[in-house]
Amino acid sequence: MIEALSHPFMQRALLSGVLVGIMTSLLGVLVVLRRSAFFGDAIAHASLAGVALGLLLGWHPLLTAAGVGVGISASLHAIERHTRLALDTLLGFVLPFFMAIGVILLSLLPGYQPELVSFLFGSILTVSRTTLALVAAIFVVVLGFLARFYRQLVFATFDEDAAQLSGVHVAAMLTGYHILLALVVIASIRTVGVILVNALLIIPAATAKLLARSLTHLFVLTPLLGTVSIVGGMVASYYLNWPSGPTIVVLSGLLFLAVGAWRWLCRG
């Protein structure tokens, strides 16, 4: 493994994996607290339209997907308030509508698109310098936002009314949270792909929730579990010659099952 790490592509993959593991996990805690697991899935699938548009026009696919994802996320909260439709109903529209647009756009591309498979199922070992720079930039934005607004976000998530009365700008907080979530999902696409990206948001936070005794524990444990899953999954995929994205997700899922079984045995 040490020898493998001497390759620049492995160093980029490891660094990208750790950054993605930390930020997806931290936002994953809020996703689990808000019970909005469908959000990440919908944005990830909808971002396929952005990837396809980028490939068609010769733009950077992830940057284009980021534009589409952020646009959808930024408008969702306002649409929710004005239409009085539940968020999951709106997401139920967003996911198939934008994914269908993505598939139609992809059908316009000539010939076989090998890069497309890596967007669907992830390919962490092919992370380029540009993609790593994009992931790092998103990491700085996410960490900066969370460091500044973490308490307000948790307050608005736990009790919107009380948060508003305490002077928290709830609507702005939730729009900011949705935009960050879209950025994090886009940043994670290279790691596990559009299809599996939601696993990085949900599984580490769900596993930590089984162990944590307080919110502070939850916010400390989740990034640890997320990073272990990504780095462990990368190492396993390297030795077993398995696809990296699915291996990361399976390892994360096995950790969840092991902790769940341990909790069940302890209770029994």
Partner: peptide
Amino acid sequence: SLPMTGREVLHMPLA
């Protein structure tokens, strides 16, 4: 099933 303690609830408005 939320692992949030009473102390953490009280901390929120006092941040």
